[in-house]
Amino acid sequence: MSKEKNTSLKLNLSDILVTIVIALVFGLVFRLLGPVYDLVKPFGLHLDALLYGIWFIAAPFAALLIRKPGVAFLAETAAALAEMLFAGSGGVINLYYGLLQGAFSEAVFAAWRYKKFSIGVASLSAFAALIASIILDAGYAYLPLLAGWNLVLYLVFRVIGSVLFSGLFPYVLVKGLEKTGVTQSLRPVTKEDYDVLK
């Protein structure tokens, strides 16, 4: 029965539980990083925007790990909900950002039909989450009303931060996890796996 389940791309209980546990770990990390993020804010120079990328990590990490549809969205949303329940700074705002960032990240993996999980796709999904956060920020933080150079600085820092922390970093982490062997039982069976049996 388990073999039959693993071949399908539908989420089973094991996938859901693993995703939520990972999301909870990231939710805790977000909660603990919140004060650090707030500390670098006061100068108005957007040093916080560099760190901002960490908040996109749950979606690409979960997707790289489990490689099934819906996982990225679930992970980012659950992480945001966890952050809200842990009373993270910003409170209810987190939930909306998490929902939209998760949806955008998911869309990137969906665009490759959940077949490509390279470092490039992971970075693109982090970038998509960044777009989502900027859409919300444009309304929430009146981005267009910042002085030109300041806005550019902000965008550049966010792009660097998001690709670094949520594109490259989760990829390295998942590579490390692959060595431990836990990923084998998580992912759907691919064609290469069948080829090994020949």
Binding site: N12, L13, S14, I16, L17, V18, I20, V21, I22, V25, L65, L173, G176, L177, T180, V182, S185, L186
Partner: peptide, 15 residues
């Protein structure tokens, strides 16, 4: 890596 791997294994066992 250790924390994540252990959490994943634990979640799978629980499931």
């Amino acid at each position: 890596i250790t924390m994540l791997a252990q959490s994943i294994r634990r979640a799978q066992r629980t499931a």
